[in-house]
Simulated assay, not measured.
Amino acid sequence: MSNSKIPKVGNRTTLAPSISSFLKHNPSLHLGGANAFTDERRHHTEVFGIHSLPKEKVHPIHEVEFTAIRGPHGTIPVRVLYPKSGEEKRKKGEAAALVYFHGGGYTVGSVDEFENGLRQLAEESAVQIYAVDYRLAPEFAHPVQLDEYDAIISWLDSSGGKSRGISPSLICGGGDSAGGNMTAALCLRRQDHKLPPLAAQILLYPEARLPFDTPAASENNSGLYLECNGIFSFADHYLPRGIPPAHRYISPGMQEIKDLKGQPKSVVCTAGFDPLRDVGVEYARKLEEAGNVVIWRHFDRLTHGWLQMGAWSDEAENAIKELAGEVKKVVYG
């Protein structure tokens, strides 16, 4: 018998009207569409970039720091979002840090396109967010990105975190979509390498494995922003030759339950109108069955990418607010 209250697959109800309207107004905005990924990179920056948003839609934040560290594969740019709500903790050296790896199929995206949603998340959770412009595939394949993730964590665990008021016991990792995949993979890899575990992992509509056999992959195949069949080309960009797709650090969601024991506390969010919905639900369930603490939140009216859609959708903003509440609870208790 399963000891998990999380279902095997998710559901969808009615697409939120604000999301429906956003998709109608941006008919050529796809992730994993038929166009070249270079076109998608440009188009995403044009639509979601914080510089493109109307001023009144930009979330206030106490302070933004642009910095960088030397990583194992070159310089890694990092954008630090300091929330006003976290200033007391920062002064006392008791602040939490969330290292954030954005989505985009390992191939598309930059921190500019995620900053607005992450500002809201930072202010409402009192957690400092370290949003990383990691190297993208296909120019750079696995494990370059995981190496960069580890480099940022090491930096925060030492001089970088100390000077910014971070408690070493409150360093978390998070990401959406492909960033959720890399976060889950990094937690497994750190466990295998006997490195200190993260305080928590925050997985937003994660690509826990390839969705070739799920109801969501059929129901939400096309026309809902993330094109399901495009996920396979993204995986091809990320996956070096010679590493099987079922590998622990490529498809955390394909691992057996016994091999997922001892993971950090997890917040897993899924969306009803997302082709990745069911692989995210499945991973949350497996983590819980393995005895881990899991908070699962399902948004049955939203689509993939809602973290970026707050400027156009109150429903998306409300989901970010709910996420922030869970992050605050998991991190600060």
Rank of each mutant, 00 (worst) to 15 (best):
K5Y: 12
K5L: 13
I6A: 10
T14F: 12
P17M: 14
S18W: 02
I19P: 04
N26S: 10
H30G: 05
G33D: 01
T38C: 02
D39A: 14
P54I: 05
V58S: 01
V64D: 02
A68K: 15
T75W: 02
P83D: 06
P83A: 08
E88G: 08
G103D: 00
G104V: 03
G109Q: 08
A137K: 11
P143M: 08
L146Y: 03
D150I: 12
I152G: 07
K162W: 04
S167E: 06
L170H: 11
C172Q: 08
A184F: 00
L195M: 15
A208Y: 00
R209K: 12
D213I: 08
A216G: 08
A216K: 14
G223W: 05
G223H: 09
C228W: 03
C228N: 13
N229D: 09
D236T: 14
L239C: 05
R241W: 02
P244F: 13
H247G: 01
Y249W: 13
P252C: 04
K261A: 11
K265N: 10
A271H: 05
D274N: 11
G280L: 14
A284E: 00
A290H: 07
V294Y: 07
L302G: 13
G305M: 13
G310I: 11
W312E: 11
W312L: 13
W312Y: 10
A319G: 07
G333F: 04
